[in-house]
């Protein structure tokens, strides 16, 4: 009996069966640009954790005797206008970028999935409200809105901090002031960038719900939760992962943009965007001060874009371009 069943199983089994995820991994490993992206992502993670121990200097440490120097043995990437070590500041900027990318991505994903799913499942006025909110957020020029929100937020956060200080004696040291900047950026970028994921999740759920296999599952008497957990979630995970990867790079880029405009990370905090705008006046005399943070920012953003592209090709086989 068992042998019989085994034989029958062998007859119907495919010669080689791979799950979507195995297939996706194999596809991804074949894509050289995506491998570059993976490498960049891991390097960024490593540097943002261990950055401060990799360099003998502190990122705010000034040495006014050695300003605007080119690369040397002491300062591998030179020093800026206040004699701070460029390499140290770039390493610290990686921490800023990674933290912002991580927290903003978590924020937008949670907000996007909850709002998108709520819209798709509840329908009616909830759906209308979520979609109108998305339309309105989309109507704004996003960088200007984020800049506006962060200027307003910064004031509120500072007021709150003063209040806490007076009321409970909570003080924030000068060195930790940069965490307030982080808070401001997390809030403003999450508020501006949530809608992409909400629209994506809503669209996925609405289109999947009409598919035949869901109808079949329903006809077999599966409960709503079974359908959600075993069909809707796995099937919409692919596009969501791609959107998260691209969004991670996008959030880091937006942080650099806000800091470049002067409304993000404030000096002496280190952010690549802030370093570019800080040293922009020096482009004629000390071009390396502008180029180095710029090149690092470019490599990281490119890495995440390549990774997102590679994941898109790997996880959404029906959309493969070539």
């Amino acid at each position: 009996m068992t042998a019989d069943a085994g034989a029958q199983h062998d007859m119907f089994a495919m010669p080689e069966q791979r799950s979507l995820w195995q297939d996706a991994l194999e596809q991804l490993m074949r894509n050289r640009l995506a491998i570059f992206g993976v490498f960049v992502a891991f390097l960024l993670l490593f540097v943002s954790i261990f950055g401060p121990w990799l360099s003998p200097y502190d990122y705010t440490e000034q040495n006014l005797f050695r300003i605007n120097e080119g690369p040397s043995i002491d300062h591998w990437l030179g020093t800026d206008g206040l004699g701070r070590d460029m390499l140290t500041r770039i390493l610290h900027g990686a921490r800023t970028a990674f933290l912002v990318g991580l927290i903003v991505t978590i924020g937008t994903t949670v907000l996007g999935v909850v709002l998108g799913a709520a819209g798709a499942f509840l329908g009616g006025w909830v759906d209308a409200l979520v979609m109108r909110l998305a339309d309105i957020t989309m109507a704004f020029p996003d960088i200007l809105l984020a800049a506006f929100i962060s200027v307003v937020f910064r004031e509120k956060v500072l007021e709150l901090q003063l209040h806490l200080q007076e009321q409970y004696g909570w003080t924030i040291s000068e060195g930790n002031r940069v965490y307030l900047d982080y808070l401001v950026i997390f809030g403003s970028l999450t508020l501006v960038q949530w809608y992409g994921k909400a629209r994506l999740v809503r669209g996925q759920i609405l289109s999947l719900r009409e598919k035949e296999f869901i109808e079949a599952e329903r006809a077999l008497g599966a409960s709503n939760w079974t359908i959600i957990l075993s069909h809707l979630v796995p099937n919409s995970l692919g596009p969501l992962i791609v959107s998260i990867t691209v969004g991670f790079g996008g959030a880091m880029l937006s942080e650099a943009s806000l800091s470049f405009l002067g409304v993000g990370i404030q000096p002496p905090g280190a952010s690549w965007g802030e370093m570019i705008s800080d040293n922009l006046g020096q482009w004629r005399f000390n071009p390396h001060l502008v180029v180095m943070p710029g090149v690092v920012l470019a490599i990281v953003v490119l890495g995440f874009n390549f990774l997102g592209d590679g994941l898109n090709d790997a996880l959404n086989p029906e959309q493969r371009r070539r």
């Binding site: 880029l253 943009s257 965007g273 071009p287 953003v301 390549f306």
Partner: peptide, 14 residues
């Protein structure tokens, strides 16, 4: 892809 990914405030100074 490279040209479009890199922000204007990096391409500009370069």
């Amino acid at each position: 892809i490279i040209a479009s990914s890199i922000p204007a405030y990096v391409i500009g100074p370069v």
